[in-house]
Design a protein around this nucleic acid. Sequence first.
DNA 1: ATGTCTGCAAAGCTTTTGCATCGTT
DNA 2: AACGATGCAAAAGCTTTGCAGACAT
Lengths: 121, 121
Amino acid sequence: MTKQLEVVWDAVREDKSHPTADQIYDRVRKKLPNISLGTVYRNLQKLVAEQKLQVLMRGRSQHFDPLVERHQHFFCEICDRVYDVLIDNQKEIKPAKLPHEGFKVTSHQLAFYGTCKHCSS
Amino acid sequence: MTKQLEVVWDAVREDKSHPTADQIYDRVRKKLPNISLGTVYRNLQKLVAEQKLQVLMRGRSQHFDPLVERHQHFFCEICDRVYDVLIDNQKEIKPAKLPHEGFKVTSHQLAFYGTCKHCSS
DNA sequence: ATGTCTGCAAAGCTTTTGCATCGTT
DNA sequence: AACGATGCAAAAGCTTTGCAGACAT
């Protein structure tokens, strides 16, 4: 584990704000001013491959989430923040039988959109 | 309505394959060889604004769907085709109460991933 | 005449990649 | 010496935009 990988991992491991690569780059540069954006991307890929991070797409950009257990997300349409949603009752979603014959469903994703508590006040 | 807008609309109005702008561009050029990709994008935006089309993101690119009623999608992870999933029983998803206090959920999206019937055989 | 729409090309944004170099073993 | 990881810059993929000319009213 190189210094760069370590610093990237430290920057995201407990970050619940679902940062983009660019935001992580900004934070990481405070510790390692010469790190390159390419290295940040490569190390994020590495962490995703190791299942230490999850990627989620929002529009055209990827956000990184250190919470790798199955959960959902809430996207604030005003401030663009992303929140984790932990559904206690998994039974509410029963996708296995929904699509037509011959389709194998291996996973599903539920996302919520709206206004977060920060923006509704 | 210009000729270009008309041809774009004709190309997508009954296309259930969830084409990308590029795929629409290819088809549209057969009728209007001089149309530009920019115009295709602009006209697609217009149709989306008029609620005649829905956009859905898959990876980094947008796909267009003339079915604007609420429905879900199935993404084949092998061939990348997109299928509409019409859920008869809407009650299975009850998002309104899921997020925390102070969050207003205005919409939600459920997506399925797996292998389509085309690819499982 | 005015305003909208077009084609073209350039730019934008996010992500990936080629390559020479550096660091480690 | 050999290998992987890095920094830098260029390229790639998709989408948007500035602009001058065309079209329609």
